[in-house]
Design a protein around this nucleic acid. Sequence first.
DNA 1: CACAAGAAGCTTTTT
DNA 2: GCTTCTTGTG
Length: 879
Amino acid sequence: MSGFSEDMPFFDEPNARPAAAPSGIAARAMAARSGQNSAPDYLRGLNPEQRLAIETTEGPVLVLAGAGTGKTRVLTTRIAHILATGRAFPSQILAVTFTNKAAREMKQRIGHLIGEGNVEGMPWLGTFHSIGVKLLRRHAELAGLKSDFTILDTDDVVRLIKQLIQAEGLDDKRWPAKTFAQMLDNWKNKGLGPDEIAEGDARSFGNGKGRQLYKAYQERLQTLNSCDFGDLLYHPIRIFRAYPDVLKEYHRKFKYILVDEYQDTNTAQYMWLRLLAQRPQAGRSPSAEGRKPDRASAGQAAPAEASERSERAAVSETKVNICCVGDDDQSIYGWRGAEVDNILRFDKDFPGATIIRLERNYRSTAHILGAASHLIAHNEGRFGKTLFTDRDDPEDDKVHVHAAWDSEEEARAIGDAIEAYQRQKHNLNDMAILVRASFQMRAFEDRFITLGLNYRVIGGPRFYERLEIRDALAFFRVVANGGDDLAFERIVNVPKRGLGEATIRQIHDTARAMRIPMLEAAATLAESDELKPKPRAALREVAANFERWQKALETKPHTELAETILEESGYTDMWKNDRSAEAPGRLENLKELIRSMEEYESLRAFLEHVALVMEAEQGESQDAVSIMTLHSAKGLEFETVFLPGWEEGLFPHQRALDEGGRSGLEEERRLAYVGLTRAKKNLHIWFVSNRLIHGLWQSTIPSRFLDELPETHVDVADGGNSYGGYGNPYGGGAFASGRAGGRQNPYGASRFDNIGANDQGSFSNTYATPGWQRAQANRTEATDRNWGTRSGHQVERIGYGETDSGYGAGRTSVKGRTIEGELIAKSVADTPSAFNVGDRVFHQKFGNGNIAAIDGNKLTIDFDKAGQKRVLDGFVAPV
DNA sequence: CACAAGAAGCTTTTT
DNA sequence: GCTTCTTGTG
């Protein structure tokens, strides 16, 4: 049997026997079973549905777990239950999650349940990718790799593809490597190899060379002994298909399969699961009746190994004990290949599946739940769940909907609200701002910096993606694996050693010609006289360095070695001598990197961790408001949640509508649902009338999702309510009809069509709300922020490369106050506007003003009251 | 090789 | 409009 080496004890049950030393919960559970009839401890406090989900261990089970219904608890308890009742050994359980975070949490909780000491016999628990690696390391040679293959990240992949595109003689401008990397990813997410992709797809890139490039790419990966992320799923799938005996081993091994966030699985993951879960049954599909042991009749004799084990083990092998947990209403990753269909189709894929709904919500108030449920009910094509709660506290606030004039005021008002909560002794840690798109974050950061309010931004470029970290890792990678050409190329000339493009090309060519890694080629070249003295000396030093470090790899502790490498290469000095603002931070990050290495046994172990876990683990060190995208908020909860930017075009996002049509809209709605259900107690939704989009002020209309909220659970804040005293600068009248945010939204009319009377009665009647004087006041304050009130307050960026960058650069950007001459110079327009500079015009929201400059259909107007703005000519009328 | 001007993005993001 | 990457010039 191919791929299993002796030193990898595969069937490790005998050593991991839980019955031998049942500890913790297992012991208690067993005692409980034999003793009284009462349920074991770990089942206490669960509701009937949860218990059903846990105790229905046999056959396929789909648990539809709504937001806040105790999904993770069910998953972990289910595993504990399987173990406690002796249904399987830990090593016979496969549990898959999507994120490292989820895996970590599950591991922890299970450890807690079955007793921390039993780490030895832990289940196979991890992300699809980490389990993929585990599989692939065992069977690497079946995929043409060695078991110590390296995992490339996206950056490496793009650089590699670029080289291939150039090697093909294609213009890498016209055919961007990034685009192809994405295509590759899509193909692999669908489990398609170079020969399986659609002809059209293959032709659409690189003058019809798509397929050829794909092949060349895979070949290159093989010579580099590397994998990309897609391969971690794709290779195992192909191995399972091509080597049924290998697959069979895993069929025997895994008795119980659990999958978290099933709604997020893509096609490749689905295929992977199917292969593992569906046992060949000679044309018969396992049904509910299949619960009875009927293997014998399937004509598939129980393998000898199985008969050695207990009766029960043999029985359960015939069944598909797969349990998928998910929520179709929280599927928000369709755009990167997730197939909601996988979850909707579950009972067809696994006939006789038990479907269990968890609908009792333990998180939110009745108002929040009511609002969320009502909203999501607008989607078609869902299983349909109705969350409920027993909670009925008349003190609970309704969901608040607020209007603001523009994004700056939105940020200001939310900042005020946060401070108000703070005065009521709420922790900042319990509050979050969830945005649709990351550009929205800026306004909040700006505002919070002036306020001196602590915040933390979650998401964005991760720790390991930072420049200095990637450089350092490249050094380590070359030391650990001299054949890592991509890493070598990254740092040959770092810090600058006068090794230009020409020299590097030469190394490249030599390496190709002699079929040796670039590092070796460099060493060879350094000893030859093919180079000019300068680069030659430089190369010689590089080669000597790496030789020395590689030797030290065996002897020195890895953290010490890492430090030495960064010192001796001159990398630390490079940043020490750099007087830019980021340099100190980068040095700090390097220190952090070394520190984090301590937890790992070796440099290699650390590098593997880094490849798979592209996040820096950081604790919440201090009290701070969280700012993040709705996507990254999935799975989290907060006492108080702010959801800004509920406007058509932004949320739902225009591109989702354009590209995804109806299903795009439904995914946006699910995203809204995710947002709403993050809140435990207080929920504030905001929309603005004016937003700066791509540098242009655009009038916006309230999101259709606002109209989809039920009135009974929603409280629309009127102007005086939260702010008091700010009137409509344009004199109230028709616009300030006193019902700021009447709730009929005219989104049926054309987008941005809110000029004139049809604007009335929509949410966008925001004059009456926070007010224009504030906007005026903003302007002065916005200027102030340039010299920052930064002292004494801390900004924490989780996973951001640059710490507060660019705030000082606001000089020209204070509310579109651009230098006029520039705009006039640019105003050679392709679409001539019907206006002339100097014309007096009227704008629905900004009032009267004079045109200062024209750029195509974009006008720069000095408004009498609102100041200078750039607007599209369609929004103004001549006076 | 360094710096500056020019061009292309610009929704969400894990592994 | 802003930011980021690439290309061009000294």
